[in-house]
Design a protein around this nucleic acid. Structure first.
Lengths: 177, 177
DNA sequence: CAATATACGGAGGCACCCTCCGTTTAGAAA
DNA sequence: TTTCTAAACGGAGGGTGCCTCCGTATATTG
């Protein structure tokens, strides 16, 4: 099953650079694999999109798990949110791809959202428990805010602005001393 | 220049049914026009997407203008918001198409948003002036809420749920008697 | 060391993309 | 009305990518 992961990685790179309309043959080539192999693992373009999507979500959830062992819970939370922004910022064509995947499959979206909320909830609860965050915000609200920040997406220098917005928002969330 | 409009209409129908990856030859065929004619009017797929996008925004802005003459300003506002929901609901593949257009061209998004805000602002101000709406919400906020409702997009029976959310929200916005 | 099952590669038929150029149409000039 | 010309049109065709299918290679089992 090694090829599956190689293909996934190649697809991520190709779609990041070229958007969702990039050639699947380019993906196979980048993976050093025949086109037939690609289609055996991912019988349709949609399934490849969805697999890429799931993989991105997996990585974020894994990261949350790792960060869950940090001693400074607030810093961990900030790092995770920043990782979200960076993921979007570094992969230009990827957002179109993910967007497409999500529109084509509402239950994929539902399940991914649930997993993201779960991951975020854990980090959030830890920060609240350690006393560095006010306790009147839910993971759903925070995620929605994050999406709002993505969605705003001003044309230039987006990453810096998003990171700044994030910091401002997190400052607002701090428990009063 | 008649053909341009015929093509735009055909494209709207084809993309609504088949999503953005639908064949441009199908669009030309539906319009009863040669493929060459399509490409003369819209030199690239992106430009066709963008034209469709602009056209949808135009229609909403025109509608707002018409509704601006209604005597019941609150009802007019509600109708306009409902029209937004219906537009999304009746055109399955269209959201993917518009999404794609907007991701590929940030300034198209910026200008369309501005126009939508302007249209909405007019309706909103009228409702506030007539005294049926509280005055502490901006058109931007309302539009963002609308987008939030779109984005939530639960898999089934989305339209009914969205319309209901809208009503609840509008009730919350009413000026107290 | 077979025999069988599983995974692979890529040729090929098909659809679609977009360009290019010969044809048609509309409107001005004679 | 007829002729001329410029703008608009249509669609053939070369190229690319999609996806299937089947012959080949590698792993597994007896």
């Amino acid at each position: 099953m090694r090829n599956r992961e190689i293909l996934l990685k190649a697809a991520t790179e190709i779609f990041s650079a070229g958007g969702p309309q990039a050639s699947l043959e380019a993906v196979a080539k980048k993976a050093g694999v025949g086109i037939g192999t690609l289609y055996r693992h991912f019988p349709s373009r949609e399934e490849l999109f969805e697999a890429v999507y799931r993989h991105e979500v997996d990585q974020l959830c894994d990261l949350a798990l790792t960060l869950g062992h940090e001693t400074d819970a607030l810093a961990a939370l900030r790092q995770w949110l920043q990782a979200n922004v960076r993921l979007v910022a570094t992969k230009k064509g990827m957002m179109q791809t993910l967007q497409l995947a999500v529109y084509g499959n509402p239950q994929l979206k539902a399940s991914s959202t649930a997993r993201m909320v779960e991951a975020l909830d854990m980090l959030l609860k830890r920060a609240i428990a350690e006393g560095s965050l006010r306790n009147d915000i839910s993971a759903e609200d925070l995620l929605r805010t994050l999406i709002g920040i993505y969605y705003a997406q001003p044309e230039e220098n987006w990453q810096a602005k998003a990171l700044k917005l994030l910091d401002i928002f997190l400052d607002g969330l701090r428990a009063k001393a």
